[in-house]
Design a protein around this nucleic acid. Structure first.
Lengths: 131, 131
DNA sequence: GCTTGACGTGGAGTGCGCTCGAAGGTCTTG
DNA sequence: CAAGACCTTCGAGCGCACTCCACGTCAAGC
């Protein structure tokens, strides 16, 4: 069994690089209550990101990238922060989100089909004109 | 061959109902240069939407719903407004958009897969605990 | 000791896409 | 001929999610 070597603890700049977010956004997320717990600090007061933090940020990013609003991500973070006992609430939240994302995917796909038709029309028009 | 009976011309409220947009948004789109041409007016100055207008608004809606920014929709409108001769530019614009939408769909689908895994974890945890 | 540079905080600013309000004109119905 | 619905324009306001600024602190290197 192999384990990924745990990193010692990352600065905010390193965390930004690994997560693809900016340092501004990382601070903003923390300020806005999106992190599980406040990020740890070094003796000089600088943020130190652990692997757990990074894994959580990855989850955050997935939720955000699929269109979950900040305030709902925060609700999810609150539930996770409270610890065991509310798994069914977390499940419900994620399932509701999943349903919305699926609906959204279907809608976008449908619209894309119509756009594809338009593209086809332009292509055939150009081919005809180009002869 | 059947043709859809052309409507006589719709008020902004009727157009809003048919397109799913609000009257505010319809006026805003027109003001912002997103329409092919300014919408026609009745003798009393009220907007009159034709079938051509509605078809265009449907296209607008598809572009918007797939994430095209307003300013790019406007660029497309400008190209269409200029008439024949720039079909290749319109095609390029739509194809670039199509590529972005496909990338976006792939990304969302991937994130959704990870969220599904999380959902699965909560489900099995709840089943185990529930016995 | 002094500079450099990454980081800290609080708060203001930005861009997008609507959304709404105010003030007034017009059409229909009783 | 008055009420009420619906329309007009112009401009301001809003919610979201960042994004940036100003200024202060700390650690390391010369």
């Amino acid at each position: 069994m192999t384990t990924i070597a745990p990193t010692a603890g990352l600065s905010i700049a390193e965390a930004a690089e690994r997560t693809g977010l900016t340092t501004h956004t990382l601070r903003y997320y923390e300020r806005d209550g999106l992190m599980l717990h406040g990020v740890g600090r070094s003796s000089s007061g600088h943020r130190v990101y652990t692997d757990v933090d990074l894994a959580w940020i990855t989850m955050l990013t997935r939720l955000r990238a699929t269109g979950m609003p900040i305030r709902e991500v925060r609700s999810y973070a609150v539930l996770c922060r409270e610890g065991d006992g509310n798994e069914s609430e977390r499940l419900a939240l994620l399932q509701a989100h999943r349903a919305r994302v699926l609906a959204q995917l279907a809608e976008v796909t449908e619209h894309l089909g119509a756009i594809d038709n338009k593209i086809g029309i332009y292509q055939s028009r150009l081919e005809t004109a180009g002869v």
